[in-house]
Design a protein around this nucleic acid. Structure first.
Length: 595
RNA sequence: GCGCCGAUAGUGUAGUGGUUAUCACCGUGGCUUGCCAAGCCAUGAACUCGGGUUCGAAUCCCGAUCGGCGCACCA
């Protein structure tokens, strides 16, 4: 049993992750989050919100999980991600049918699968690899489709990413942020991809949760106002160059990486730093985390630079858990084109620019009668003329222009050339998008695997030596979750199952709950067993009520990782635990150490 | 989607063509228990599904589903 198996077994047994629809045999690519898993997930999402929404100020929105066809036509998911495939009946290799018929069909990408099948048959096209017979063409699209309303007239798709919902809201968002760049927006939600063969547990799912930020920036200025604060922040970077030259990732400060041009610009570097902070805060091991740059041929054609946060897993090696890309203006332009909506921002200059221009002023009183129906076209043609030099403009020549494909001569008395001074206050630009995209489910797996450990427990041969029954079984399984993400934050345990201890313990449990601390009361089994039970689900602190509690009002707090204990007052225990969980108090300072 | 391998209580497992399917952990109730998976009593819980062969199938065969690995795929 490797670590993956151990983690999945623990997650299943203790209520973190379950295969969905189990009583019906299950379906690949779907997982349920059990009680502890859902709690862990929510806590991780809320830390993400704390960083992106509260601290960076990128408000969260919520758009439908079903999108209309045009949205995904514009995004390229309908055309680009819907491939007609055919499979060789002999060697079972799959091919793009539209590519195979390129030589015999003029418009292969507009053909339906049935039409492609016919063409392949008629032209006797064989498998390019082995010459075998090709099977029928079928449409393969990663998107789940559905129909909207009765009659199945309108096709809808389950979104394959949350990003499009934010791009589509761009005009509203721009107005919300009072027409100024840069601004960002976030969304956490379910997305759907009909994977061919989902595997590896929660690593590749058909329904999963993304947390994405879309940050709209001025393409001419990708500096970040907070860059100085992260200039010395050092990350493990695995650049395109390092990959192609066979080197490993190297530690480098972000300042250096931007200066050397390894990371395209400050905004992207800042996004990397935030990603790192988030991942480490939720419990990804920094030693098993790196940022890998996409190679040139791997990057989407529209992207400028793209980095994946990857975690090292025991079984799968490096696994991508976050993608951070500069998507340029690709998406906004695409939606602008398909929706016929202006998705640009008017950016004011710092100083208005005074521009001297030479313009042609048509004399419509003469042009109108002279050209009648064509007058408007002539006027437009004249106005759109550009005068590169003033000398020409000053001459009073006959102007020859093309109007509707025929040459028209405009005599000098029909126009006037003027030099004008214009004050321009700004211009319209389409913003570029910086997009960090988090795969929450993969992050959860990373957190579980990196937190998982089995350790030897030493030094209890004195008191319990009379019960030397299971001396082989001294190991304990610990889920060393960060206290901030642990589902159960404190266990409340009466030392013995006796009424006089149960009462005070239950009071402490309810005091903790009032403070918003997820506390679990447990009086079943010996104290050691209950500690172990809580170690396994990552409960960071256990509070034990004993007979001293009844006398001097103190309880034992036991630290999951060190197994050390301190004695602290019971009446302020909720505050103490709260402060411990959020890192305001260190465990050693939470009470008096006991041997 | 292709190939190989697998599927037994909640978890990990043993096992055989033939009566109540093994063991451990686990859960629950009780006794015990004064700080790191003690003990005792009682109790709960499984042969993935469908078809076939057979007097009889959890066991053999076929298919499906799920899982693992390799290939393909991963905008």
């Amino acid at each position: 049993m490797d670590i993956y198996d151990s983690v999945i077994e623990l997650a299943k047994r203790r209520g973190f992750l379950w295969n969905s629809f189990e009583i019906y045999g299950g379906t690949a690519g779907f997982y349920d989050y059990g009680p502890l898993g859902a709690m862990l997930k929510r806590r991780i999402e809320n830390i993400w919100r704390d960083i992106y929404v509260i601290n960076e100020g990128y408000y969260e929105i919520e758009s439908p999980t079903i999108g209309i066809e045009n949205v995904f036509v514009a995004s390229g998911h309908v055309g680009g991600f819907s491939d007609p495939l055919t499979e060789c009946q002999k060697c079972h290799e799959s091919f793009r049918a539209d590519h195979l018929v390129e030589d015999v069909a003029s418009n292969p990408d507009t053909l339906t699968p049935d039409e492609l099948s016919v063409i392949i048959k008629e032209n006797n096209i064989k498998c390019p690899d082995c010459g075998g017979e090709l099977g029928g063409v079928y449409e393969f699209n990663l998107m789940f489709s559905t129909s909207i309303g009765p009659g199945s007239k309108r096709v809808g798709y389950l979104r394959p990413e949350t990003a499009q919902g934010m791009f589509v809201d761009f005009p509203r968002l721009l107005r919300f942020y009072r027409d100024k760049l840069p601004f960002g927006v976030t969304q956490i939600g379910k997305v759907y991809r009909n994977e061919i063969s989902p595997r590896q547990g929660v690593i590749r799912l058909r329904e999963f949760t993304q947390a994405e930020a879309e940050i709209f920036v001025d393409p001419r200025d990708k500096s970040h106002p907070g860059f100085d604060s992260i200039r010395d922040y050092t990350l493990s970077l695995y650049s395109d160059h390092n990959q192609s030259s066979g080197q490993d990732q190297i530690d480098m400060s972000l300042g250096e990486a931007v200066d050397l041009g390894i990371i395209a610009h400050q905004f992207l570097a800042y996004a990397l730093a935030m990603t790192h902070q988030f991942l480490v805060r939720v419990g990804v091991s920094p030693e098993r985390l790196r940022f890998r740059q996409h190679m040139k041929d791997e990057m989407a054609h529209y992207a400028i630079d793209c980095w994946d946060a990857e975690i090292l897993s025991d079984r799968f090696g490096w696994v991508e858990i976050v993608g951070i890309a500069d998507r340029t203006d690709y998406d906004l332009n695409a939606h602008s084109r398909v929706s016929k909506t202006d998705l640009s921002v008017y950016v004011e200059y710092d100083e208005p620019r005074v521009v001297e221009k030479v313009v042609v002023k048509p004399d419509m009183g003469k042009i109108g009668p002279a050209f009648k129906g064509k007058a408007k076209a002539v006027m437009d043609a004249l106005k759109s003329m550009e005068f590169g030099n003033l000398s020409y403009s000053k001459s009073n020549d006959m102007i020859s222009i093309q109007v509707d494909g025929e040459q028209v001569d405009i005599p000098p008395d029909m126009y006037e050339v003027q030099q004008v001074t214009e004050t321009i206050h700004g211009e319209n630009i389409v913003p570029h998008v910086i997009e960090p995209s988090f795969g929450i489910d993969r992050i959860i797996y990373a957190v579980l695997e990196h937190a998982f450990r089995e350790e030897e427990v030493q030094g209890e041969d004195d008191v319990k030596s009379k019960n030397e029954v299971r001396d082989e079984d001294k190991g304990r399984i610990v889920l060393g979750l960060k206290s901030e993400v642990a589902p159960v934050q404190a266990a409340v345990l009466p030392l013995l199952t006796r009424e006089e201890l149960k009462g005070p313990a239950k009071e402490i449990e309810s005091a903790l709950k009032h403070k918003g601390v997820m506390a679990a009361y447990d009086d079943s089994g010996t104290i050691g067993r209950r500690y172990r039970r809580n170690d396994e689900i990552g409960t960071p602190y256990s509070i034990t009520v004993d007979y001293d509690t009844l006398e001097d009002g103190t309880v034992t707090i036991r630290d999951r990782d060190s197994m050390k204990q301190v004695r602290a007052p019971a009446d302020t225990i909720a505050d103490t635990i709260h402060d411990l969980i959020h890192g305001y108090t260190r465990f050693e300072d939470a009470g008096t150490p006991i041997a």
